[in-house]
Simulated assay, not measured.
Amino acid sequence: MAYADNASKTVIVVNSEFPGPTIINAVAHAVLGLVGSNNRDAWNLLAYPSPAFSSESRISEFPAIVLRAKRSSALEKLMCALRGTDIPHNVFIDSMIGASAEDQQAATLAATPEQNKLICVALFGREEAIRPLIKSFSLYKESETSRVAPTE
């Protein structure tokens, strides 16, 4: 199914070297930071009321796409390509996992590509502006090797 409202999109590129729970944590933090540090209205958050679930969610009119990088170096190249653009973006580095925010901030200040890895990069923008930057990444899909075998 092709989604009609895709003039803009949120794209999250994740490093598949990391386990699923680590990726989910990184994505949540990266997207929160992306929205929090930019114009929230750009996402055109629409109300999705669901009386049966006693909820009213706010969901962006625009799609959110999760792409896969095989290693940190691909995300580092993406970050270099984003430099000097006006495309809002946010990154999550493995140094941002730690015992406290203070420890994480200190580790991130000292982080280097030789000793640390990028877990994800989140970006938001017009389709035509971000398409050239993300064309080398594929959709993130569950890997056959990461599946847990059912227990009997």
Rank of each mutant, 00 (worst) to 15 (best):
F53Q: 14
A107I: 09
L75M: 08
Y48E: 11
I65M: 09
A42H: 10
G125P: 05
A149K: 09
P132V: 09
H29W: 01
A26T: 02
L118F: 14
S95H: 05
L67W: 09
A2N: 11
L82S: 11
N90T: 06
P88F: 10
I59P: 03
A106N: 06
S100C: 07
K77G: 04
I130K: 03
G84S: 03
P113E: 09
I87V: 10
F124R: 07
G125W: 06
T145N: 06
A101Q: 05
K77L: 15
L109Y: 07
R131T: 10
Y3T: 01
V121R: 06
A149G: 08
V91M: 03
A30R: 04
R40P: 01
N15H: 07
L78R: 00
D5M: 03
P49D: 08
S136G: 15
A52W: 03
E56P: 01
M1S: 13
K117H: 15
A2M: 08
V91G: 00
S138F: 12
G125V: 11
S50R: 13
L139C: 12
I134S: 03
V35S: 06
E56D: 06
E142G: 13
S73F: 00
A107P: 01
L123F: 10
S100T: 12
A4H: 07
L45E: 12
D41F: 05
S100K: 02
E128V: 13
Y3S: 04
N38H: 15
T145F: 06
F137W: 05
N38E: 04
V91T: 14
E76Y: 11
D103W: 05
I130F: 03
K9H: 01
E128P: 02
T145R: 13
E61K: 15
